[in-house]
Simulated scan of single mutants.
Amino acid sequence: MTAIVTYEDVQAAAERIAGHTRPVAVARADTDVWFALEYLQHTGSFKARGAANFVAAHALAGTMPEAGVVIASGGNAGLAIAWAAARHGVPATVFTPATSPAVKVDRIRALGADTRLVGTEYDQALAASREHAAATGALLSHAYDHPLVAAGAGTLFEEIHRARPGLDTVLVACGGGGLFAGVAAAAHARGVRVVAVEPVGCPTLHAAIEAGEPVEVGVDSIAADALGARFVTPAALHWARECDASVLLVPDAAITAARRALWEERRIVVENAAAAGYAALHSGAYQPAPGERVCAVLCGANTDPADLVARA
């Protein structure tokens, strides 16, 4: 079983990556609603935090092999590892499905990573990355299922809390569960409620809670390139139980509408997965109580904005 990320892990990650990642900006969206603008992070998503923590921890411990690091990714985690590895002068190999958005694949290559397209789903790229690690001795990272990666992601909430210490609730998109687990570990320590938001077509955490364990789900969503995991991590399920977290499912139409509203009303461009948390608010799937102070995380912007601009 995957190790459960702890709040102490998040605190250690915050010290390790301080000065290497961008502190999140938190902007008021409405009277009691804020946006965490994490799409402004290095590489365009929160994944930079986990990658920075993973690579730095191994570099400091002397456990980074000459073959470097390898990862499978729908795009954002690959970008993050390529960026973090380059900062340490470490070789990086990224396996990504052939269906990954070109805007992400092109940026991974631009960062100097050996980029290989395999299959049509994340799990196929993951199998290829494991074979590569076994054959070359490269250090195998993971897009979300690793305590160093989840702890790095959790540093996002520490910064949100610093900016808005009176916050009641944070809404965060959930795919494989790395971001959710890290944020939940930190939020629970701060007494803040966590709401996980998933596409109807990728209900990993929702299905795990119902089954009592991580179970395989289908992958069918407009946000599948970032939220298209087939299993949620045991750590995410642990924290969902520990926090008694709410898990909301939103249809693709709500995600698309929220993404478009962010552009048309605020000139914010994010990818579909990053609009999922706000989709719960925008669609009414989550209705805050009177006076409840809520923050929706906008976690990534690695997208082609042409479909927004063309209709604006």
Rank of each mutant, 00 (worst) to 15 (best):
G68A: 07
R267S: 09
G137M: 08
G182K: 01
V247K: 01
F35V: 05
L281I: 12
E121Y: 10
A187V: 04
P65N: 06
G177Q: 05
A56R: 08
A185C: 05
E271H: 07
D123Q: 04
P234R: 04
L117N: 05
H161Q: 13
T31V: 08
G89S: 05
A25D: 04
A185K: 01
R190M: 05
H20K: 12
I17N: 00
H42W: 01
S221C: 08
V24E: 03
E8M: 00
G166V: 09
L37I: 12
H142N: 02
G284C: 11
T96W: 14
P147Q: 01
E242M: 12
V270F: 08
A29D: 14
M1K: 10
F180I: 08
P251Q: 06
T204F: 02
D30K: 00
V94P: 14
I108H: 02
C295D: 01
H282Y: 03
D9K: 07
V309P: 00
L79I: 06
E15V: 07
E66F: 10
A274C: 11
V192A: 00
A57V: 00
A52H: 10
L126S: 13
E216I: 15
N272P: 03
A226W: 00
R28K: 15
I17A: 10
G176Y: 02
A189Y: 00
M1H: 12
D106R: 11
H146E: 14
G175F: 04
I222R: 06
T31D: 15
R49E: 10
I255N: 06
A102F: 08
A207P: 02
A125L: 11
A98M: 12
C243H: 10
T93N: 03
L248R: 09
R190K: 10
C202K: 07
R193L: 03
A296S: 05
A150Y: 08
H142S: 09
R109V: 14
V294H: 02
P97S: 09
V183M: 09
A254G: 14
H238S: 08
D123W: 06
A184F: 05
H20Y: 06
V33W: 06
C202T: 13
V270I: 10
S129F: 04
R28Y: 06
A257T: 12
G75A: 06
A72L: 12
V105Q: 04
R266G: 03
A110L: 07
